[in-house]
């Protein structure tokens, strides 16, 4: 019957869509380049919390920081080692971007790869960009 041709075409299209990610990546994938630690961060050796936790929880830490600064007016964070940090995205030496002063090779590298676009930069700035 001529329906069969139509059905086979449909199935082929469906399977093509299904395996498209495989076909697209046949030529090999681009390797993820690890985020670069700035000289300053290297010197500091330690982030706010251990690296493994930082990797997955940094947005929640930022959320708490924001809340603490804006609602409670406290601007200094003391971590479990007793180290002090300025609770800020980009202001001061001891803030995220103060230490990681290479946003493009650090924050953005992960975010671009994982397709995350933090809306923070609608208002906050990277100090490097305004200089």
């Amino acid at each position: 019957m001529n329906d069969k041709k139509l059905i086979i075409t449909g199935v082929i299209i469906f399977i093509f869509i299904l395996i498209f990610p495989f076909l697209y990546n046949l030529g090999g994938t681009t390797e993820f380049i690890d985020p670069v630690l700035s000289e300053k961060a290297k010197a500091a050796k330690f982030c706010v919390v251990p690296k493994e936790d930082m990797k997955v929880e940094h947005m929640q830490i930022l959320d708490v920081w924001r809340d603490t600064v804006v609602r409670k007016g406290e601007r200094v964070y003391v971590n479990s080692d007793g180290k002090k940090f300025t609770m800020s995205l980009s202001t001061g030496e001891n803030s995220c971007l103060g230490c990681h002063n290479n946003k493009a090779e650090f924050c953005d590298r992960c975010h671009d790869y994982a397709s995350v676009r933090p809306y923070c930069w609608d208002c906050h700035t990277d100090p490097k960009e305004i200089k």
Partner: peptide, 18 residues
């Protein structure tokens, strides 16, 4: 519980590129 998204993407990209 949070997971390492970047690590997982490296894994899934490995899966689709055999």
């Amino acid at each position: 519980t949070k997971v390492d998204i970047v690590g997982i993407k490296e894994f899934t990209m490995g899966l689709v590129s055999f």
